[in-house]
Design a protein around this nucleic acid. Structure first.
Lengths: 203, 203
DNA sequence: GTCTATATCCAGATAGAC
DNA sequence: GTCTATCTGGATATAGAC
């Protein structure tokens, strides 16, 4: 007679744990050697495995990049949803910008993987790209909630945030030279897209 | 008795020509395979040489990246100086932004080499970096001439231009989705840094 | 699941002939 | 100046034992 199936699949749990371990190692190496410097050899060594064993968990190196891409986007998504969102439109935008720029500066390799096409021949899979679209949508929805939903206006908004991130990560990765301009840039943007009549400065 | 020295050093000229050929090949391969995908083997093959021969002209692969870095910056510098600069401040800024963003989109690998830290372990040499500073100074001087010389204001300006470039290259490399926002962004910036009293819209 | 062994290929760089 | 030959090491990936 068959045993009742256990409610937890310990094998699957173990597998997930190892996958998490692999990705954690991959991130650490990417941070140290650069994204393009990532090698399966180093990943395996870091977790006490031999390189071929990784293929039990990932089909290829690209698959690892892909999983990292998903993970990074999920982290940003979590960062966005865990915020205490204020009501004031200007404060909402400031918070979005701050979350995004800080997230970028926090881990430059992650920033490059998510937002720059830096690895030769790597394009995220369709499923991975879907997660990136979720992030984009989250950001768009938040902006719309703040009253800034227009298409051209949103493209300008993404350019502003991406420009602050790009300058901060590339030219002052350990400082705050562009981080501290966030509020001013948000004000500039709000003033620009708000009809003159309604304008009022935030605190 | 010694001959009179010829006024042209044909040997040096030939050498310069070969160096130019090598760099041209390197750019072509970078465009096709990505910056990190550049290999001396491919460079040599493309110009009908064997890989070791490249070492007659460059000490290392890094030296090639370095020369590319210089060349790219010189191209941008030339682009800036060859412009017919208008008098109107707003027009000056529009032109700067357009030159910069178009230059970026034109060759994304060049953009990555010049403005993003994308190759593991590559940092431009001091001499190469000096050329990059020239570009930065050119841009700063042009902005100052337009009446926008303040420090924080200029950091905002570089963030704007870099953001438009980043979004255009990463998300619409063959289109003009952010290119066509340049004038609006410049207006936004000018309105922001201009005391309200003096403000007037450009054509 | 993890291993050893290996295939296959590529990389940057150097020695030394010509 | 350019070559051949070679060094040394690294890469991803697969086959198959255990």
């Amino acid at each position: 007679m068959l045993e009742a199936a256990p409610t937890r699949d310990r094998r699957a749990e173990r597998r997930e744990a190892v996958i998490a371990e692999i990705l954690e190692a991959a991130w650490a190496i990417a941070r140290a050697e650069g994204l393009a410097g990532l090698s399966l050899r180093d990943v395996a060594a870091r977790i006490g495995m031999r390189p071929p064993s990784l293929y039990w968990y990932f089909d290829s190196k690209r698959a690892i990049y892909d999983a990292m891409f998903v993970q990074g986007n999920q982290q940003l998504l979590a960062r966005l949803t865990e915020q205490q969102w204020p009501d004031d439109p200007r404060s909402i935008l400031r918070l979005i910008a701050r979350v995004f720029v800080e997230f970028s500066v926090e881990d430059i390799q992650r920033y490059q993987l998510l937002f720059q096409r830096t690895i030769p021949n790597f394009e995220p899979s369709a499923e991975a790209f879907a997660v990136a679209m979720e992030v984009y949508e989250q950001m768009r929805v938040r902006c719309a909630a703040a009253g800034f939903g227009g298409h051209a206006a949103f493209d300008i908004w993404t350019a502003l945030v991406s420009g602050l991130s790009a300058q901060q990560t590339a030219n002052d990765p350990t400082g705050d030279r562009w981080l501290r301009l966030i509020d001013e840039v948000v004000d500039m943007y709000v003033d620009h897209v708000t009809p003159t009549r309604q304008r009022r400065k935030g605190s």
